[in-house]
Every structure is written in structure tokens, then in C-alpha cells.
Design a protein around this nucleic acid. Structure first.
Lengths: 237, 237
DNA sequence: CGGATGGTTGATGCGTTTCAACAGAGGTGG
DNA sequence: CCACCTCTGTTGAAACGCATCAACCATCCG
């Protein structure tokens, strides 16, 4: 299957060191809510901090996350980094980047993805109305998410940002008062998503814990002890 | 024409005070790069600070700006405001907000727009491939603009933000070294776009003027005396 | 055990905000 | 025409929130 070969070339272009290779091609085809994409992709695995694609790379493939979490980020010349989005299982990335990828995609944790060639996506979009509709919806949802993120970075305080972030994760996971939410990303990732430093994120989390608004049983979980307080804090008391 | 009537109802729903009315219906139909939209709209006029639509309003219409500038913003409960975008002549707003508008749109200056019903837009999208392609492109460009804005708010300093803003305006206007760019929005608008205070924006502009990197002949123009210096400042020296 | 990695906490400094006073442009009415 | 007012922008002084720098801690793993 020539797609497999192309994938390999594309991946090499992402500057993952040879050592980081090989990703295993696990299977061709996987479950997918979007019927038309079902048999279009092949599955790849990436280890922690491996690069899936880089900003500026030719966008030959899109990816659907099967397991693990991907961060989409921009690296500035002087090392500053801004994470635009955490892509979770069931979500897509690199979709509809005509020409070249606008972000670098890196594996936050062990990740498996289905790769779909952009050509296939475009063809599907041109021929199937349902697919088209889904893609427009996808773009619109992306835009909405980015809009909320924008307001957060522009006008919320450090505490508001961290709390909003926890609530966003809770919302995505369907967590309720008293439930635990997973924090697959590390503190630096959270900081770079929120436009803060790692120390500030730590301090806010410690504060919340001290006030018994959340619990932190380990580095990768937060227990939402008091959702009401969180909601109040999220928009400034 | 029943569309004209519907426009009136929609506009009233935007809570523009009766005093602020009437907007004049200037003409039906106007020039448009997108052939299919050419005869679809009617033209409306809004005065400075009038609301074109509000966040949460049912999105019955989209708007193409013919003249003037619109700001798209979110208002927080405590009065904080974040501007997501300045919509300039030739640009669109309110497009593809299925259901309800996600932003409040207000006139920065005297504005004339063409209003197009969402139903028409959708129908055009379903039937004409060129229109569909254009709309996908529009969404993608919006997303890209928002992504750059996001990085700016998350990771750039006050000076970098103001400089990037000037360069963005210069780029849009096609201005070169030595040219003047128009600043149709006031300082508060700039501050709310950049996630800063009005005082900080003032100080940075004054600084740039003092260093002879820009000139400020009046409140609504900036002369780009030294584009190279601006580009350097935009990404941290 | 020792080193590496990632996280937390404290002390200090800086950049931006806040608060306050003032300046300039434009508009109105005596 | 000028005094007066309002609106917006500018500048200064002080306060504050977050960043920076540095020390320390916990966990993991060879």
C-alpha cells in the first residue's frame, strides 16, 4: 500500500530522531465515527515527546487520536512556547491545513493515531455531503474553542486560567462534583497552554488544594472537591 | 422584499436603542468578490459604537463590511472586554455561526455593511462548489488569524504586542517603510485587542515615537518610520 | 545508593496595572 | 470669539501580580 510508504517519508520529515523510531504500524483501518474515514487510515504509535509533525511541514496527512494526548504548539525563536490545544482521543489534528501545518504536534503521552492522507480527506469532502458538513462543523468547533482560549489569555488572571482549565478538562471528561480528572500533561505543558510559568501553575494548584477546593492525590489527577467554588473562581468570584 | 423586513427585526433584537436608529437602507445589492453573494444582500449603516449584533443573538444574518471597521468582542460580567478581531472593508463577520453569534459586533467607526441571510449562505454553500471552497477557506483563514492572536496574548510582551499589531495593520493595508497606516480604532480598542490597558498601549506608542521608530501625526495614523526596527521588536529583538 | 526528572516553595525583581492628575481636540452656548 | 465642557489620550507614582532565580523535595530507575 503506497500510503504506508508515504507516511514514512512524511514522518521522517518531522525530524524525529532515528533513535525515536520506529513507530509501529499497528494496523490498517480502525474504528471511526465518521463512516467514510473508517478504512482510510493506518495506525501509528508515538512515544512521549515525540514529534508527530512540525510547523511548516507539508500537510500530507491528518491524524485522529485513538489513545493518549497530543499538544499542538508554536515554538518561538527564543524558546518561548504556546500550546494552542490538547488533542484527546476521538479528536483530530492537522485537518484542513491546506498546504502546510500551522502547528507542531507532539505526543504528551504514549499516543496512537490514525493517519489519513489529506488528498483522501479532500476527496471525501468533495463527494460526500455528510462528510462536508462534518468538516465545516469541525472547523467551527475549533474556532469556538480557540475563541474561548483567546479570551482566557487576554483577560483572565492566573487563578482564573488554571481553574478554567480544570473545568474544561472536567467538562470534556464528563466529570462531576467529587470526581477525579486526569491530567495527562505535565505542569510545563499546562503553563504553556495557559500563558503562565510552571511555578505559577504550581502555586495556584497548591492554593486550591490548601483551600480544599481540589485534591491532588498524585501528579496526574485532580479531584474536584468543590465544583461550585471552581465555577465561581473561573469568572472572578 | 421580505428579507428587508427580517433584517429590521433582527437588528432590533440587537438592542440598539431606538434613538440610535434609523439605519438607512441604502441599496439592495452591492459589489462583492464572491459572485454568488452579489445580489443576496441589502446595505445597512451603523454609527460609531452602535451594536450590529450581540453575543448569543440568533445568527440570522452574516455581514460583509463595505466601509468602516467593526470590532468583534466578548464582554465579561465584570466589565472586562476582549476584542477578537477588527473586521475591515471586504471582510465578513457573523459568517457560519450556526445557531447563535459567538461575539458582539460593534461599529468602531461609521460603518456600512451588506447583510446576507444565513439561510441564503447555507443554500449557496450546499449548491455551489466554488462557494463551498471559499467558505472553507474563509474558516481556515479565520482560524489562522486567531492562532496568531492566541500566541501573541499568551507569550508576547506589551511592546511586542503593540508592534505586532502595527505590523498587522501595515500588512493588511499593504503599507511599506515610511508609509502611514490608519488606526480607525481608539486606544481602548487597541488595548482590548492586545489584552493590555490603555495606559500601557499609550506608553509603548510614546516609546516607539521617542525612539523615532514610528511617527504619530494624529490620533488615527501611525507612520512606519523604521519597519526593520519594528520587525525586530515584534519577535523580541 | 546515586543520579535524573519533574514538581514545589521561597525570596526577589520587573512589567504591567491601577490610580490620579493633566493635556489636547472638538463642540456648545453665552 | 472665547469661556467652558466633555471626551480621549498621555504621563507620573505607586501597587500588585506574575516571572525569575534558586533551593529543595519526591519519585523513578539503573
Amino acid at each position: 500500500m503506497s500510503v504506508a510508504f508515504d507516511i514514512t517519508r512524511d514522518a521522517r520529515a518531522t525530524r524525529v530522531s532515528e533513535k525515536a523510531l520506529p513507530w509501529s504500524v499497528i494496523s490498517a483501518g480502525s474504528k471511526d465515527d465518521t463512516q467514510e474515514l473508517r478504512q482510510a487510515g493506518i495506525t501509528l504509535r508515538f512515544g512521549r515527546n515525540e514529534t508527530i509533525f512540525s510547523e511548516g511541514d507539508e500537510a500530507k496527512y491528518s491524524y485522529k487520536v485513538l489513545s493518549g494526548v497530543i499538544r499542538l504548539c508554536k515554538h518561538m525563536a527564543d524558546g518561548r512556547r504556546q500550546i494552542a490545544e490538547f488533542v484527546q482521543p476521538g479528536d483530530y489534528c492537522g485537518l484542513l491545513n491546506f498546504g502546510e501545518h500551522r502547528f507542531t504536534a507532539e505526543a504528551v503521552s504514549e499516543v496512537t493515531v490514525t493517519a489519513i492522507s489529506q488528498r483522501q480527506v479532500e476527496t471525501l469532502g468533495e463527494n460526500t455531503p455528510a462528510m462536508r458538513k462534518w468538516m465545516t462543523g469541525f472547523l467551527t468547533r475549533s474556532l469556538m474553542g480557540m475563541q474561548d482560549h483567546l479570551v482566557m489569555l487576554g483577560r483572565q488572571t492566573a487563578k482564573e486560567r488554571v481553574v478554567s482549565f480544570l473545568l474544561m478538562l472536567a467538562d470534556r471528561a464528563g466529570a462531576e462534583d467529587g470526581d477525579a480528572v486526569e491530567l495527562p500533561m505535565n505542569r510545563q505543558d499546562i503553563a504553556d497552554y495557559l500563558g503562565l510559568t510552571i511555578e505559577t501553575v504550581c502555586r495556584v494548584l497548591s492554593d486550591l488544594k490548601r483551600c480544599r477546593i481540589i485534591g491532588l492525590p498524585n501528579l496526574h489527577q485532580a479531584i474536584l472537591t468543590n465544583m461550585d467554588a471552581l465555577h465561581d473562581l473561573a469568572d472572578g468570584e
